[in-house]
């Protein structure tokens, strides 16, 4: 079964959000999402300093066959992006919830986290 860390939150668009530390979370796509996409060959990362509202397209993950938008389930400012993905986009496949993270976001509304699913609910959602 897919690897969904128990302390992460999950969106219906198959993104994960790590627990907030000092108001900052990490965002990525789930193991289920990378498996559906197939070989990831390119990740269009956001620009550090840009702000996004909940449900904005924050990145694009591209497989050989398709380009898929990544929608942020939380609002905030991008403070760091995973530059490893420029040279090793396949990390999204091999380690979606770890080294395949996409960006770090400073939350503008931490209460948005409460609207997301926990790991058990997300696994149920994927069935």
């Amino acid at each position: 079964m897919s690897k969904n860390p128990a302390d992460y939150k999950y969106s219906q668009e198959h993104e994960w959000i790590s627990p907030a530390v000092d108001g900052v979370v990490t965002l990525g796509i789930t193991d289920h999402a990378q498996s559906e996409l197939g070989d990831v060959v390119y990740v269009d990362l956001p620009v550090v300093g840009d702000s996004f509202a909940k449900e904005d397209s924050i990145a694009v993950v591209e497989s050989v066959k398709a380009a898929s938008d990544v929608y942020t389930p939380v609002s905030g400012e991008v403070i760091e992006v995973n530059e490893l993905l420029d040279s090793e986009p396949g990390t999204v496949n091999t380690d979606a919830t770890g080294n395949g993270w996409i960006c770090k976001i400073r939350l503008s509304d931490p209460s948005e986290l409460d609207e997301l699913m926990d790991a058990a609910a997300y696994e149920e959602f994927c069935k």
Partner: peptide, 9 residues
Amino acid sequence: PVQYTGIID
């Protein structure tokens, strides 16, 4: 079928 193990493979 669009792929089995992966398109690149």
